[in-house]
């Protein structure tokens, strides 16, 4: 019981830390990568909360698709900025 509680606390701390880094990192590309990490940690949290359905959806949609959308947007904005210079 206490081991699982300790794991939950550790996971919650990791979630908060990755979210904080996501919002505080000055580099937008790194922020997007950290957001994907945050999504994967969240997947673990859903598994700990006995919600495998949400864990599946979070891994595929929250981390996967949102991450791809973000990285694509970062790439497009950078490409346009670089070509404008």
């Amino acid at each position: 019981m206490s081991t699982s509680l300790a794991f939950d606390l550790l996971l919650a701390a990791a979630l908060l830390w990755s979210a904080w880094r996501t919002l505080a990192t000055p580099d937008i590309f790194r922020a997007a990568i950290l957001f994907i990490v945050f999504g994967l940690l969240l997947t673990l949290a859903w598994a700990r909360l006995a919600a495998p359905d949400i864990a599946l959806a979070e891994a595929a949609i929250g981390a996967g698709l949102t991450g791809a959308l973000l990285l694509d947007a970062v790439g497009a904005l950078r490409a346009r900025r670089d070509s404008a210079l």
Partner: peptide, 23 residues
Amino acid sequence: LRRILAFNVMGSGAFLVLVGLAQ
């Protein structure tokens, strides 16, 4: 772009409260 990230973090927090509090 970063504001959209923050918005997503906000939503994830709401989801965690919803399920965590019920369980």
